[in-house]
């Protein structure tokens, strides 16, 4: 079945992710889902903003946050967003190998980001004794940033699963929408991070 759908440039749609009805549905549904995710993160941001001064006598954001690590994390995630654009660029050109390579770089950068975040949390918990139970600020901080981190983990697992699953068989009309959706998801993670580094970290040390 899938053999017939292997793309080759002679009879290929220039938007492989939207060439089938299933692809169109997925594309549309995933964007709608991202609309819902926006509200989800807005609720978390709102909660954080309502509670970011409620330190209950414990550590405050000014005392905790160091901008160097956040800057590195931001650069890693921003770059990974560009690399996943490159991956999709090669998908549309049906260069499967190149797509896989760029996705691999994206995953590597994402892992780097995740490593930094784990280090950061570890440092706060063990170095500063600042946990989810320290104060309402602590609860709000870990929940907001942790939700984003959870999204990063899920996105990485998703992309890795797609890469391994399709490593041998290449690109076809059945899996093109899957790759495209995973990349959309990855961009959305970056969108959320832009607000996190602005609202939580930069405005937090101000």
């Amino acid at each position: 079945m899938s053999e017939q759908d292997i793309l080759n440039p002679k009879h290929m749609p220039h938007d492989p992710e939207k060439a089938t009805l299933e692809g169109k549905n997925k594309f549309m549904g995933f964007w709608f889902f991202l609309g819902g995710e926006t509200v989800l993160f807005a609720s978390l941001f709102g909660t954080y903003l309502a509670l970011n001064d409620s330190t209950n006598g414990g550590s405050s954001s000014e005392e905790l946050f160091g901008l160097e690590l956040v800057f590195i994390m931001t650069m890693l995630l921003l770059t990974s967003s560009l690399t996943s654009v490159y991956a999709m660029y090669h998908m549309k050109n049906h260069a499967f190998k190149k797509m896989q390579i760029w996705l691999g770089i994206t995953v590597a950068l994402g892992l780097g980001f995740l490593g930094c975040e784990i280090y950061e949390f570890y440092h706060y918990i063990h170095g500063e004794h600042f946990t989810m139970r320290s104060s309402a600020f602590g609860s709000a901080f870990y929940t907001l940033v942790g939700f984003h981190g959870g999204h990063v983990v899920f996105g990485l697992l998703w992309i890795i699963a797609l890469m391994i699953r399709n490593a041998r068989r290449g690109l076809n009309l059945y899996n093109a929408p899957k790759f495209y959706l995973a990349s959309l998801y990855w961009h959305f993670i970056d969108v959320v991070w832009v607000f996190i580094f602005t609202v939580v970290y930069l405005m937090g040390v101000l």
């Binding site: 609309g35 819902g36 926006t38 993160f41 709102g46 903003l49």
Partner: peptide, 16 residues
């Protein structure tokens, strides 16, 4: 739908 989400997000953050 994305801007619908942004609108709701705006109201939510404003309220909170």
């Amino acid at each position: 739908m994305f801007y619908g989400g942004v609108f709701t997000a705006f109201l939510t953050i404003l309220a909170l």
